[in-house]
Design a binder for these strands. Structure first.
Lengths: 246, 246
DNA sequence: TGTACTTTGTTCGAATATCGCACAAAAAGG
DNA sequence: CCTTTTTGTGCGATATTCGAACAAAGTACA
């Protein structure tokens, strides 16, 4: 285990939307490192071009994007699914997305946006909690129960709206139901006004590797009509993608 | 300088779309490290959850996306420009994008796609060479001449199509012209069938910090009509964004 | 405005982890 | 089956990290 690599990565992760500019002490605090250690990490990152330093605050540079998006680029998934997403989105007139699971979060890897429904802009690399999203439910349902429970227990389940399920037993039951019916439906649990419907995407071995969803404004049609109306299209794409063995 | 952090980051960057799975020796070769060092880095990354190891090959995990997209998230730019891009794209019926410069490459930070023109899917985080793109020309034109020349000299200038400018003096003249006229136009230098038009975006101090462009299919209208038709809309958005002082 | 106090940044020797050579093991190739 | 190439690992020399102590900068309050 190379300790300094681990510490350097912690320092990079210390930067976020809320904290784009960090002093040495702040960095040390957030990353849980000694000030001296944080300083060495930051100076090294600056020297390598991953950070800028104005003598007081550090910021990270676009160079850091080479790390993460190098990763997105290694995934054939986004390129494979994008044309299907585009067609599907066009056909049903709604935004569609594909995401994968990283611990308790879903990570968007491809997206075809129609008019904006959500308040925040989602793009490849964006993250949302798994427990309250349709794609998250589908992806958690594919894990064994013990692992799913472990992930759900790891972080507090925030009620993002008054409709959000936050009881772990209720969530576990919902995962079982999702597994049984093959898709997940969410009614304004992430954000008021937003519903969504998701199905799993399988690899050649039949393992769930991603989820495909459609997002809908909540006032367009009654909740029970949604699956009837959009599920066939999602399942067709699911089937087509299974053929080309992702 | 923390050497091991620098080496670990090199290892992460060794992974790419062409080489998503690497053995220890391959990694060492690509990153220019000793095998023993590469091995320690990879095992550390695996232990931290940034990589997977099947006993033979390493792959990187979605966790790596936390590094890069943490960075994208720190930038207010994408969120600020996205609504404007969406409106602009809708209005002119073409794909629009905003990108920033990282050395010799442009990095897409926001995008509003209409029908696909380019063969490859562009998304936030995607990279293209600066010398042959309209946004790249605009961003290079904002640097001082010496720095621009240095960047252009750093890597061989590939002729991606028969129209691509690859002569450094010709490019420097084009940058000067771009600086003078305030926008850049590209006719199928990245890819046959694709034209584009870009303007700089300024921060509160008047510094160029990003570029805004529109991409067009090459057969839609004569080249000389493009600026006349689309430049006013781009300049209007440029002006609006200047007001809210990015 | 001066002084005490808090926070932040930096230095330095002791302690520790890393480097990469050299060797061992395993594949690959003939 | 032996040679060649590739891959994995132990170990001493060496460079890096640790964290307490110090210095500097900023704050609070009389």
């Amino acid at each position: 285990m190379m300790g300094s690599l681990a510490k350097g990565l912690k320092v990079i992760e210390a930067f976020s939307a809320e904290r784009p500019r960090l002093s040495i002490s702040e960095t040390a605090e957030i990353a849980g490192l000694d000030r001296a250690t944080a300083r060495r990490c930051l100076l090294t990152l600056a020297e390598l071009g991953y950070a800028d330093y104005d003598g007081k605050f550090f910021t990270i540079t676009p160079r850091v994007l080479r790390l993460g998006t190098g990763c997105l680029a290694t995934m054939p998934l986004p390129r494979l699914v994008q044309p299907w997403l585009d067609r599907l989105s066009q056909e049903i007139g709604q935004s569609t997305s594909v995401s994968i699971l990283d611990e308790g979060e879903i990570v968007y890897v491809a997206r075809a946006a129609q008019q904006r429904v959500m308040s925040i802009a989602l793009m490849p690399g964006s993250r949302l909690p798994a427990y309250c999203t349709s794609m998250g439910r589908v992806l958690l349902a594919a894990l064994d129960e013990q692992r799913a429970r472990q992930i759900l227990s790891a972080k507090p389940l925030i009620a993002r709206t008054e409709k959000t399920l936050t009881d772990i037993e209720a969530l576990m039951r919902e995962l079982a139901a999702t597994r049984a019916r093959g898709y997940a439906q969410i009614d304004q649990e992430v954000e008021i006004g937003l519903r969504s419907l998701a199905v799993p995407l399988f690899d050649a071995r039949g393992q769930t590797i991603a989820a495909l969803n459609v997002g809908l404004p909540a006032n367009q049609e009654p909740m029970q009509e949604i699956a009837k109306k959009y599920l066939p299209a999602l399942l067709r794409v699911q089937g087509e993608l299974a053929k080309i063995s992702i």
